[in-house]
Design a protein around this nucleic acid. Structure first.
Length: 598
RNA sequence: GGGGCGUUAGCUCAGUCGGUCAGAGCAAGGGACUCAUAAUCCCUGGGUCGUGGGUUCGAGCCCCACACGCCCUACCA
């Protein structure tokens, strides 16, 4: 048994999240975490809402809200969505807590004290009216190369050339139309070159495990070759103050949002520990070199998790070329594995909120079972390459695989037992075919568990469903419905007992993927319906006197072990109601019409 | 422009070290059964593994070029 940190990407608070987001980090991280708990590991699963940065300011302006109001609103929406999806965070918090601000400042001071920040002057655009950094992509103008009018500051969409915003003709801010001002400004740069050797050693060691997905490790090693110092502060009035004399009180100098967002993994662990009553408990996941940490995200976030975040950790620990000593947090563990997924597309197109190529988590969950979506993501999600979500495929996966395969097995099992015995019967002597099917099902614990542990969830759920098929075949071959005579009653009891055991086993194997239905299936076989503990949304006070906020938390210690639990003979079983809802094929057209804008 | 990943049956995808690796699921066609949300079980069809070269006794698997798709390109997060 090990300590396992499940570090889940922090959703950005500029709006509600769509199903592509949760397909990338939400479902995979929850499947993994639920399995690891059942396998006996001590899992700490943390995340939260990422609430700083320029896009929040822009979204707030558009909505006529303050940035904090916008963040409050979206944090609540996102947390509700994730809880509704059943993602079992030990703590899902946010970056505007006082705890997070303090932890980020401590990290900054450690990195600074060890000499891994260098002050540099840069030349960049600001908005004259607000003094805020105007990121390149928010500037547009005429391309100096091809003359195209709608060129962005970083790149011309017409000729494809990379640009420097200062070279654009007639540059204007896309935010408010004003002409940007190009100014000299002072920033702290993270001295990544001084950390490059340490990062390279870490990546080589990680590569040697053979566990990282090839594209993630290759990409990470590649960006190391051209590593340069990177600015970790911004001219902006929304974010975490730079905790140094002369900077602390400067209202328009803040830490870069990515510097603070990745620290959320640590600050959320600390917040969790403080709320648990043992404020030092987080150290078991962060200071013990034996502890494991898995980071879940979409592929656009790899840089920040395989370079920036480990660089911050190394710098804080004094592990780079400049040496140094850690401060109060001690030596912090680097990621064991960066588990990055690819992207989900939508009916063949990229998700885009502005172009309305989008399905929000909330909308999907308002009309369909969370487990139907979770099944789709596990079975057909963007694990190793981009995957396409289509409504017809969603309906097919739900009806032909989930309902027809697993749902039907549960239903026919409970029905036969209810009809013939009203309770789980005792088995007589087992025939070879009984032994065989029980063996196949029990073996699924090892194969499926091993695959989930190696982040092969598609194959894992495929193996689980294959075992479901084996049991359906066993039922068809055994034909228990034909055993009507009194002399056949013991054989009938044996078959139904074996079926009940198989369903109970497979239900545990599927529980990480389908937690809501796992509880329903457990109840259908007369159990208490608690095999998959659920997260809860809870309003809490800020620990340090700030405003209260909702979090996701839960007690998952009751999750059963990842092994066969013998069914209890005599457990009452009544005629079941179907666990899964079969979808009418017409939903495909309805949803496509909805996408097209009614 | 540079870097990375991908392109395998109608669809969605597996293919570890180059040698039964040409596969699975679903869809399609045929049959069986009736406990079950017309669900289940059995059988069958189907691919010159993006294109063009190369290395090799032998290549989805290695090398080169090209096409298409996607990600990153470090002040978007």
């Amino acid at each position: 048994m090990s300590r396992v940190l499940s570090a889940v990407a922090w959703p950005y608070a500029n709006g509600p999240r769509h199903i592509g987001h949760v397909a990338g980090f939400g479902v995979p991280s929850d499947v993994f975490s639920r399995y690891m708990r059942m396998a006996g590991h001590d899992v700490l699963m943390v995340s939260g809402t990422d609430e700083h940065g320029t896009p929040i300011l822009i979204a707030a302006d558009e909505a006529g809200l303050s940035p904090q109001e916008l963040a409050d609103r979206n944090h609540r929406i996102i947390a509700e969505d994730l809880a509704a999806l059943g993602v079992s965070y030990d703590l899902y918090t946010r970056t505007t807590t006082r705890n997070h601000h303090a932890v980020v400042q401590e990290l900054f001071l450690g990195v600074h004290q060890n000499g891994y920040f260098v002050e540099q002057t840069t030349y960049g655009a600001i908005s004259p009216s607000t003094g805020r950094t105007l990121p390149d992509r928010y500037i547009e103008g005429t391309c100096p190369i091809c003359g195209y009018d709608g060129a962005r500051g970083d790149q011309c969409d017409n000729c494809g050339n990379q640009l420097d915003p200062a070279d654009l003709k007639n540059p204007v801010s896309r935010i408010n139309g004003e002409t940007p001002e190009f100014v000299e400004t002072q920033h702290f740069f993270l001295d990544l070159p001084a950390l490059a050797d340490a990062l390279g050693e870490w990546l080589d060691e990680r590569e040697a495990t053979g566990l990282w997905r090839p594209n993630v490790i290759r990409f990470s090693q590649n960006i190391l070759k051209e590593i340069r110092p990177r600015a970790m502060t911004r001219d902006i009035d929304w974010g975490i103050a730079v905790p140094l004399e002369g900077w602390q009180d400067n209202p328009t100098k803040k830490l870069y949002v990515w510097f603070d967002a990745v620290i959320g993994y640590l600050s959320a662990s600390i917040e969790w520990a403080r709320r648990s009553g043992d404020p030092e408990a987080w150290r078991q996941w962060w200071n013990d070199p034996e502890a494991l940490s898995y980071y879940f995200m979409g592929k656009d976030n790899i840089t920040f998790h395989s370079q920036i975040w480990p660089a911050e950790l190394l710098a804080y620990g004094g592990k780079g070329a400049k040496g140094g000593e850690p401060r109060e947090y001690g030596e912090l563990n680097l990621p064991t594995e960066v588990v990055s997924s690819e992207f989900l597309t939508m009916e063949g197109r990229k998700f885009s909120s502005s172009k309305k190529v989008v399905i929000y988590v909330r909308d999907l969950l308002s009309r369909y079972q969370p487990d139907a979506f979770r099944y789709f993501v596990a079975a057909a999600g963007p694990e190793n390459q981009d995957a396409d979500f289509t409504w017809s495929e969603f309906v097919r996966r739900t009806n032909d695989e989930l309902v027809a395969g697993w749902g039907n097995l549960v239903n026919r099992t409970a029905n036969l037992i209810a009809k013939n015995f009203g309770e789980i019967p005792a088995a007589g002597p087992l025939a070879p075919e009984d032994e065989a099917v029980l063996g196949v099902v029990e073996a699924a614990f090892d194969t499926v568990g091993g695959l989930i542990g190696r982040h092969r969830q598609k194959q894992a759920i495929g193996e689980a469903m294959r075992a479901v098929g084996e049991v359906n075949k066993y039922v068809s071959d055994s034909e228990p419905w034909k055993l009507k005579g009194e002399d056949q009653r013991e054989r009938l009891a044996t078959i139904l007992h074996v079926m009940a055991q198989c369903v109970a086993d497979l239900n545990l194997v599927l529980a990480p993927f389908l937690p809501f239905s796992a509880n329903l299936v457990d109840a259908a076989l007369g159990g208490p319906g608690d095999v998959a503990p659920m997260p809860r949304l809870e309003d809490v006070e800020d620990l340090d006197g700030g405003a209260g906020y909702p979090v996701i938390t839960g007690d998952y210690s009751t999750a059963p072990r990842w092994e066969r639990r013998p069914v209890v003979v005599g457990t009452p079983v009544v005629k079941p109601t179907p666990v899964f809802t079969k979808l009418d094929p017409s939903v495909v057209e309805e949803e496509l019409a909805r996408l097209a804008g009614e």
